[in-house]
Amino acid sequence: MKTNDVLLRNVTKVVVFIIFLFSLHLFLAGHYNPGGGFVAGLTSAGAITLTLIAYDTQTVKSMLNINTIMMTGVGLLFALGTGMIGVITGDPFLTHKFGHVDLPIIGDTALHTATIFDLGVYLVVVGVTLTIIQTIGESD
């Protein structure tokens, strides 16, 4: 695909950020509103896929130098690690903790370890989707 896709590439440059922000919103809002790690992961992967379509795999690789399989692994580690928190404190596996924490700059914040778990899901989904798309895309 060597035609000059000026329109596509320019639109992509703008839209990718919007999609990415939307996925961030879906991820963070997941506990209270529709969304969550899974959909957010898929949407982020969609944003990257759009750049893949507009440019090519080499360009995307130079922009985002991520080992997607490693990303999947890290996601799984997050999910598993969250579960281990409960084990360390003497509760059953995957017991989540939540509460209000007074952070230095932000101040009083409601935090929940389920978010870390969701982050794991998010990373796995992004990693998996990108692995599949990139692998098949590069196959011939």
Binding site: G30, H31, G35, G36, H112, A114, D118
Partner: peptide, 10 residues
Amino acid sequence: GKNIVNVILV
């Protein structure tokens, strides 16, 4: 949490 689906999931 308020999203019951997500809370059940995670």
